[in-house]
Design a protein around this nucleic acid. Structure first.
Lengths: 249, 249
DNA sequence: CGAGCCGTTGAGGGGATTCAAGCTCAGTGG
DNA sequence: CCACTGAGCTTGAATCCCCTCAACGGCTCG
C-alpha cells in the first residue's frame, strides 16, 4: 500500500481559519476578501482531503460547485470518439477547477487526483451570491478562464507537437512547475504519460529509461521522481537547436 | 454546434442597421441588446472587411479591442520555442476573438484571416461600460471563454491525437462546421494543414490527394473544396472501428 | 521565358508502434 | 517462509507510418 500521508485534522475550528491560513489564499478565488468577508462564507465551503485516483467530478456529476486546489495535482481525462483515453489538462495548487459549473454546464472531463489532494469545494450558489456584490470576483473568474485557455493552447503547442522526446521533456517541465518547487515531481504511470503525449506506454517507458540513464530523471518513490531542472532545460535547448536551420521567417 | 439563425429587421442608422441586420447577431456579444441599446453603441463599433492573410492583431498590437467574426474564418498562429509555426485555434462566424484584451493582457497569438473576413471591432472601453449596467453581458463573456476552452481541449483530443489520416478527417469536419453549411470548405495550404496537425506539408499533400481519390474531397477553387460529409463521417467511423478491440475500460 | 511558389509524387530512412518476452515488486494464501 | 499471482515496468525485434530528401509539373508574374 503506497504511503498515503493522512493529514491530522487540527481542532476543527471555523472554515475561516482554514481560509485565512490557506497557503494558496493570495492566488485563490477569494483572495481579495478580508477576514470579515470570509466569515460570511465559512459555512458553505467544504475542505476535502482526497487520496490518489479519487474522482472529484465527471460528466455524470451534478455541476453545482467549483473547487480550489490547495495542494496536489489534478488531471482531466476524457475519451476520444475512437474510445481511447486522453488527458487534456493538469491543474495544481491555486487553480480553480470545474468553472463550467458556474454556467450551469455539465462537467466536461473527469477530474481525478494524481496523488493526495487537498481541495476546497465552493458551491456555485455562493459564487453567484458574492458575485452580485463583489465586482472584482467577476473579473477574477474571467482571469481564471483566460489562463486556462492559455494553458490549453500551450498544451497544443508544447505537449502535442514534435518528436516524442521533446514532448516528454516539456511534460517534465510542466510537472515540475505544477508540483512542489524542490525538484521533486509526480511521475505518472507510463500509460498515463502516453495518454498525455499520445504515445504507447512502451514508448513512454523507453523515454523515461533513457532520461534516467542521462541523469535528467531519478526515480525516488512510487509515483515520484527527482528532476535535474538545469539538465532538463539543456536537453530541451539541444533538442530545439538541432532543427534550427532557418528561423522560420 | 455553431447555430447561426438569421435575424432581420428594419433599422434607421448606419451601424445600428448593421448590427440589427447582422446575421450573427443572436450569437453575437450584444445579441441581448435591443435596438435602443444598439443606438448607444453605434459610434464605437467599427465594421471591417479584410482580405485573406490580413493580420487582425498579434502579440505586438495594443490590446484594446475585441472582434466579432461576422463571416469568414480566422486562424491563430504562434511559434513554438523551437521556432516552428503552429496553428492552435480556428474561429468562425459568431465567434468573439481577442478576449484577453478585456483583461488588459497582450494578445497571445497572431490572428490572421483565412479568406475574406468581415469583422466588428469592439473597443474594450465599450464592453467595460456596458458591463457595469448589463449584468448579462458578464455572463455572456464567461460563456465565450468557456466555449473557447472546450474547443481548445477538443483540439487536443481530436486534432492532435492519433494517426495522420484520422487527424486530417477530423480537421475537415471542423472546417465544414466553421464554414458555410453547404459542403464547401476553406481548404488551407498544405503547409498550414501541417501547422495545424503537426505534419510535414508533404504528408498533408499526400493525405489530401488520397481523400480526393476516395471521392471524399473535391478541389473546386483556389483555397476551397467540396466535401462529401457523409462519406467523411463514414471514413472516420471506419478509422475508429479498426482499433476497437477493447473499449478501453 | 525563366524565376519562384505551391502542390504532387517517389524512394529511402528513422522514429514510434506492435508483438512479445522477462523483470520487479506487493499482496495473497499455502 | 515462500511460491504464486498479477500489475506495472523494461527491453528486444520486426513492422509500419511518417519524415526527409529529391525531382517534377502547373501556375503566376516579372
Amino acid at each position: 500500500m503506497p504511503v498515503t500521508p493522512i493529514y491530522r485534522q487540527k481542532a476543527r475550528h471555523a472554515q475561516v481559519q482554514v481560509c485565512v491560513a490557506c497557503e494558496v489564499r493570495c492566488s485563490a478565488l477569494f483572495g481579495a476578501l478580508d477576514a470579515q468577508g470570509l466569515e460570511r462564507i465559512k459555512a458553505d465551503i467544504d475542505n476535502l482531503e482526497l487520496t490518489a485516483n479519487t474522482r472529484i467530478y465527471g460528466p455524470g456529476s451534478d455541476s453545482d460547485a467549483v473547487y480550489t486546489v490547495r495542494s496536489g495535482m489534478v488531471r482531466f481525462e476524457r475519451f476520444t470518439e475512437r474510445g481511447d483515453l486522453r488527458i487534456v489538462r493538469l491543474a495544481g495548487p491555486g487553480d480553480l477547477i470545474g468553472l463550467e459549473a458556474l454556467l450551469q454546464r455539465p462537467y466536461r472531463d473527469e477530474a481525478l487526483c494524481c496523488g493526495p489532494v487537498q481541495l476546497c469545494r465552493i458551491p456555485c450558489e455562493l459564487v453567484d451570491k458574492l458575485g452580485q456584490h463583489e465586482g472584482s470576483l467577476q473579473r477574477e473568474l474571467m482571469l481564471r478562464w483566460q489562463t486556462d485557455l492559455e494553458n490549453a493552447e500551450a498544451w497544443v503547442a508544447n505537449l502535442a507537437t514534435g518528436p516524442a522526446r521533446r514532448r516528454m521533456l516539456r511534460l517534465l517541465l510542466r510537472l515540475a512547475d505544477l508540483g512542489p518547487q524542490d525538484g521533486t515531481i509526480w511521475l505518472p504511470r507510463r500509460e498515463k504519460i502516453g495518454a498525455m503525449l499520445d504515445l504507447t506506454f512502451e514508448t513512454a517507458s523507453r523515454l523515461v529509461s533513457q532520461l534516467r540513464r542521462e541523469g535528467i530523471l531519478e526515480l525516488t518513490a512510487m509515483r515520484t521522481a527527482r528532476v535535474d531542472t538545469t539538465a532538463l532545460r539543456q536537453a530541451l535547448q539541444a533538442e530545439d537547436a538541432e532543427g534550427s536551420e532557418r528561423p522560420a521567417a
